[in-house]
Amino acid sequence: MSSGNNGDNDVIRAAGCVLWRRSPYDDGLEVCLVHRPKYDDWSHPKGKLKRREDALAGALREVEEETGFRCAPGARLPTAHYVANGRPKQVEYWAAEATDGTFRPNREVDRIAWLSPTAARHRLTQPRDKTLVDALLSALHLT
């Protein structure tokens, strides 16, 4: 939430989820990563919040827009803070279990991958995203 001081106007607010499911093959945990052709990177589904949008609502909206999946939000995960295009960015994350949906390639995301936590850590482009996989496992009491 914004604290109301003038500096908050400069912060890019975003939200996303570490989307997970039980594998349809072996019941193991799978994490969904998205590939963004604009950046040629692999990340967790996330995006900028709309004006006055609640962070969790924005995270769920972004997951559905980028992956085609609806999800049930769970534990709050660590917030990422970094600089993007010279501006501070804050991304709030939640663990979220995929409930139903179907992926269709779109302008922002051309493919998704459901991977084991270890494979997801290796595929993620940014180191800060790798730590979110560990936070998910901790939140699900799997560490």
Rank of each mutant, 00 (worst) to 15 (best):
Gly4Asp: 07
Asn6Ser: 15
Asn6Tyr: 11
Asn9Glu: 13
Asn9Leu: 12
Asp10Tyr: 14
Val11Gln: 01
Val11Arg: 08
Ile12Met: 12
Ala14Cys: 08
Ala15Glu: 06
Gly16Arg: 10
Leu19Asp: 02
Trp20Lys: 07
Arg21Ser: 10
Arg22Asn: 13
Pro24Trp: 03
Gly28Val: 02
Gly28Tyr: 11
Leu29Cys: 09
Glu30Ile: 00
Glu30Gly: 02
Val31Thr: 07
Leu33Ile: 10
Leu33His: 01
Tyr39Asn: 12
Asp40Trp: 01
Asp41Trp: 09
Asp41Gln: 12
Trp42Asp: 04
Ser43Trp: 06
Pro45Asp: 09
Gly47Tyr: 02
Leu49Cys: 08
Glu53Arg: 11
Asp54Arg: 10
Leu56Gln: 13
Leu60Pro: 05
Arg61His: 02
Glu62His: 14
Glu66Pro: 03
Glu66His: 13
Glu66Gln: 15
Thr67Pro: 09
Gly68Trp: 10
Gly68Phe: 06
Phe69Cys: 04
Phe69Val: 06
Ala72Met: 09
Gly74Val: 07
Ala75Arg: 11
Ala80Leu: 15
Ala80Trp: 08
His81Trp: 14
Val83Leu: 01
Val91Asn: 00
Glu92Ser: 11
Tyr93Gln: 03
Ala96Arg: 05
Gly101Glu: 03
Gly101Lys: 08
Phe103Trp: 08
Pro105Trp: 10
Pro105Asn: 06
Asn106Asp: 04
Arg107Phe: 12
Val109Gly: 07
Asp110Gln: 06
Arg111Ser: 11
Ala113Trp: 07
Trp114Glu: 05
Leu115Ser: 02
Leu115Pro: 03
Ala119Glu: 14
Arg121His: 07
Arg121Ile: 13
Arg123Tyr: 04
Leu124Lys: 07
Leu124Pro: 05
Gln126Ala: 14
Arg128Ala: 12
Asp129Glu: 12
Thr131His: 13
Thr131Trp: 08
Leu132Trp: 03
Ala135Ile: 11
Ala135Phe: 01
Ser138Asn: 13
His141Ile: 00
Leu142Lys: 10
